[in-house]
Amino acid sequence: MGLRLIRRSFAALCALTFMVGAQAGDKYLVKEVPYVEPSPPGADETLIYVLREKTSFAAMQKIAIIDNDTVLGVLTPGTFTYFKVPSAQHEIVGYISPMPMVHYRVMPSPGKTVYLLIKVGYTSGLFMLPVDEAEAKPLIAAFRQTEIGLKDQKAKMNYKEYYDKLFQ
């Protein structure tokens, strides 16, 4: 009983921290924009969509989308962003201030489109996973696209190297 009480208090503290953190301003100047379908990726490129599911958990918390070491987007619930990268390994990270919390390693996929969905929930999970086009298209149609005003800002570190170390 004692442990359970301690645990609940600890979790409540975490939840409050989440709320306080949500008051932080948006340093990347995120805005919603009308969806413009991108041109297909070139033969040596990969087109990556990142979608954030629409849930109320941590809804006030923005998620910065980082490709290895570069901030390429910011997502709120029910939004998505996309970008093209040279075909190679890319660590796509969802950064919830003050730390990265979800990630997915995109393997070399020349000429292909990859769809990544960020699950955000207390019980439904907090992770990023690939979904197929059939699952992604209806979400893209229902969600709103975002883009950031401050483009190509460097993240605190290279998260490709960071997650490589985490799995060594």
Partner: peptide, 26 residues
Amino acid sequence: ITLTALAAVALASGCAHTINITPPLN
């Protein structure tokens, strides 16, 4: 805010949290 957070956590305690066990393919 404190009471809301405590209530939410209390309700959620003891439940199952979804995880994903796919390793990075690299």
